[in-house]
Write a protein that binds this DNA or RNA. Structure first.
Lengths: 251, 251
DNA sequence: CGATCGTTTGATCCGCATCAAGATAGGTGG
DNA sequence: CCACCTATCTTGATGCGGATCAAACGATCG
C-alpha cells in the first residue's frame, strides 16, 4: 500500500518532517494492517521493523510460564511500538504485541531506521524525548504499584483515559474490556470489579462500560490528594483543568 | 576544580569523545563533591545541571506524604543522574538525590547540554541507548514487582549486585545497608531480613553484611528458573557465566 | 438456541506490611 | 576500659489487601 505524505505528517513523530525526508521514508516503509486479536509480533521473534500506530490499539504484554498475561502497555494511534528495541542492542522481541482492535501501522525496516537515524536529526530528538517521557511514566507507575491501593490506581487510570482520549468526564464508554484494563493495571479482574463499587462513594460511577465522574474536589477525602505520586504523573492536573473548562462553558 | 581529560574519558558516556569536544566540555563543566548523607538536589528544586557520577553512589528517591522513602534507584560511578529530566520537558526535579557514600560528580549546566546536544552526535546516540536500556530495566522491574515473591526479588538483586560490582560470588560484602537495599526492592526491612533466612536453603547465605552463593543449578527447585521475567533482565545469564568462569580457573 | 466470552459475586487463603520489642554493633566521652 | 548512645538489624504477633478458586450471570454471535 502506498502512503500519503498526509498520513505521515499526522503522526506526532513525523509531524514536521521535510518533503524530501518524507518521500524517502515513504519509499522505505509501508502500511500494514493487523486485525483484532492478531499478533503483530511475538516474544522471541526477530526484530524486523519499527512500528508506528496509525489507527487502532495494540496490547504489549508478556506471558508468564503459568500462562498469565502481564500487560505492559496499551498503545494507541500516534504511539510508536518498539523504540527501545530499535535503539537498544536487542535482536529479538522481548514482548508480544497483539491488536486490541482492527489496526493499521506504519512499518519501517529496523536496518533502514538504524542507518538513517542520524540524517533525521529532529527525529532522533523526538525519539529521545519520547523515551525520556516513557521512562518517567514507567517509573511513576512502578512507584504507584507499591504505594497506592487498587482503588486509587483504578481511579487514576480512569482519569488518565479521560484525558488521553479527550472524553467527556461526565459520561463516556470504556475503550477496552475490563479484563484488559485490569491486566494493564496489574490487578485481577475480580479485584477490578469489586473496586468499582467502592469508587461510587468517591464520585466515580461505572455501570457496564459507562463511566461518569462527579467533581469531588471539595469533598475530597479520598482520591489521590494524599498521594504525591499521582500528582507526579500530571494526569490529575490535566483532568481537573478539563473539568474546569467544561464548567465554564456551561453544564 | 579543573578536570583532566582522563577523568572524562573514564566515563562511559564520554569514553570516545574527541579532544576538541572534550576541551569544550571541560570548560563548561566542573567536578563537585557530595558528602555521604548530603543532598545533591531535592524534589521541587530547579533543574540546573546534568550529572555524571565519577566516584561514590547516589540514592534516587521520593518521599511519600507519610514520610516513607521510596528508592527508585541506586546509581554508581559511570552512571548519569538525570538524563530524562534534561531531555524531557521538566523544569524542576521530580525526585531527591542523596549521596549514599562520599561521592564526586561531573556537573554540566543543563542549558549548555541542551544547546550542544546536537553537536555531540555520538553523545546523543549514547544517551538514546542509555534511556532505552533503562526503560527496559524499569519495565522488567515493574513486572517483577507483581510476579515474583520477595524472596525471588532479593535473590535476583544479590546476583545483580555480584555482576554489577564484579564481586566474587563465593563471598563478598554488601555495598549498602540492608535498609537501603530493602527500600530499593520496595519491600520493608523486616521482610528483607526474614527473606534472608529462607534463602539459605537456596544456596544463598547472608550473615551480617557477608554474602556467599553456592551453585545450585542442578538442585534448582527455587530460584527464578520458573520465571521468564528474571531471565529477561539478563542478570542470570551473566551471573552464571561468572560462576562458570571461576570454576574453570579452579574453585 | 446453545456456545463462547466477559463480568460479577462469594468464600478462602497467603504474603507482606505494620506495630512493638529486643538484639547487635560502632562510636564517643568519661 | 567501661558505660552510654544511636544507628542498624532481627524477631515476634497481628491484620489487611488482594490473589485464587469456584460458580453464577449477562451479552454477543453464529
Amino acid at each position: 500500500m502506498t502512503i500519503a505524505l498526509e498520513t505521515l505528517k499526522a503522526l506526532p513523530l513525523f509531524s514536521d518532517i521535510s518533503g524530501d525526508d518524507g518521500a524517502m521514508l515513504i519509499r522505505n516503509s509501508r502500511i500494514i494492517s493487523c486485525k483484532r486479536g492478531k499478533f503483530l509480533f511475538m516474544h522471541g521473534d526477530k526484530i524486523t521493523h519499527f512500528y508506528v500506530i496509525c489507527r487502532g490499539a495494540m496490547q504489549i504484554f508478556r506471558e508468564t510460564p503459568g500462562g498469565h498475561e502481564i500487560t505492559n502497555d496499551i498503545l494507541i494511534a500516534g504511539d510508536s511500538l518498539n523504540t527501545e528495541e530499535v535503539v537498544g542492542s536487542q535482536t529479538v522481541h522481548a514482548v508480544n504485541a497483539r491488536a486490541v482492535e482492527d489496526s493499521s501501522l506504519l512499518a519501517i525496516p529496523v536496518s533502514w531506521m538504524r542507518e538513517n537515524l542520524k540524517e533525521f536529526d529532529h527525529i532522533a530528538g523526538k525519539l529521545l524525548q519520547n523515551l525520556a517521557d516513557r521512562l518517567h511514566s514507567v517509573q511513576v507507575e512502578a512507584e504507584q504499584l507499591t504505594t497506592m491501593s487498587a482503588a486509587q490506581m483504578v481511579a487514576c487510570y480512569l482519569q488518565k483515559l479521560c484525558v488521553l482520549y479527550d472524553f467527556d468526564p461526565h459520561g463516556f464508554e470504556l475503550p477496552y474490556t475490563k479484563t484488559l484494563i485490569a491486566s494493564r493495571l496489574r490487578i485481577e479482574k475480580e479485584t477490578f470489579s469489586r473496586t468499582l463499587q467502592t469508587l461510587r462513594d468517591q464520585g466515580i460511577t461505572v455501570t457496564g462500560t459507562h463511566v461518569s465522574f462527579k467533581d469531588m474536589r471539595k469533598a475530597d477525602n479520598f482520591s489521590c490528594g494524599e498521594c504525591s505520586v499521582a500528582e507526579e504523573c500530571g494526569t490529575h492536573r490535566l483532568f481537573y483543568e478539563k473539568l474546569d473548562k467544561l464548567s465554564v462553558h456551561g453544564t
